[in-house]
Amino acid sequence: MKRTEAREHIFKMVFGLEFNTADEMPQQLEMYFDQLEEAKEKDREYIQKKAQAVAEHIEEIDRLINEHTTGWKTTRMNKVDLTILRLAVYEMKWDDDVPVSVAINEAVELAKRFGGDESPSFINGVLARIAD
């Protein structure tokens, strides 16, 4: 599985955090992976590990996002954009395997696919400020 495809699955898992309690997440992950038949075991482990790492850093990530936005705090953002930002900020700050430029580019691509019309430029702007 390519990293871009794995990133999309990670995005979907992190998105689920907004709608499920911590106690519900293991069952939700199991059901998600049951539908993900084409993924090899190493892909599943990578996806789960990275989604969990993002979840563990959400407070720090949200603080960084809030520090670099004006008029758009995480509590006001739509959940798709917020999830994309969380994943990208995690990759930029804590994942040494992902160059900052790749994290930003992949986030913009996710925004084009899953976000609204303004999402790609919004995501790009916020991440550019965080990258500086």
Rank of each mutant, 00 (worst) to 15 (best):
N78P: 07
E60C: 09
K12H: 09
M13F: 01
L64V: 12
R63C: 13
I58A: 06
A55E: 03
M13G: 00
A6S: 09
R86P: 05
H9A: 04
Q48G: 12
K42I: 10
E60R: 10
A55K: 01
T21Y: 06
I47N: 00
V102F: 15
A53D: 07
E60M: 10
E8S: 11
D81S: 01
E5I: 05
H9R: 00
E24F: 05
F114G: 08
I10G: 00
T21F: 06
M92F: 04
M77P: 03
F19S: 07
A22Y: 12
A107R: 02
E109L: 11
V126I: 07
A111T: 04
A51P: 00
D81C: 01
L29H: 14
M1G: 09
Q35S: 14
T70A: 13
N20G: 05
L36T: 15
D43N: 08
E60H: 10
K40L: 14
N105E: 12
K42A: 13
D97I: 10
D117H: 14
G16E: 01
V98P: 07
S121M: 12
L64I: 15
L82V: 05
R44K: 11
R44L: 07
E37W: 13
I84M: 02
D43L: 03
D117P: 13
T74N: 06
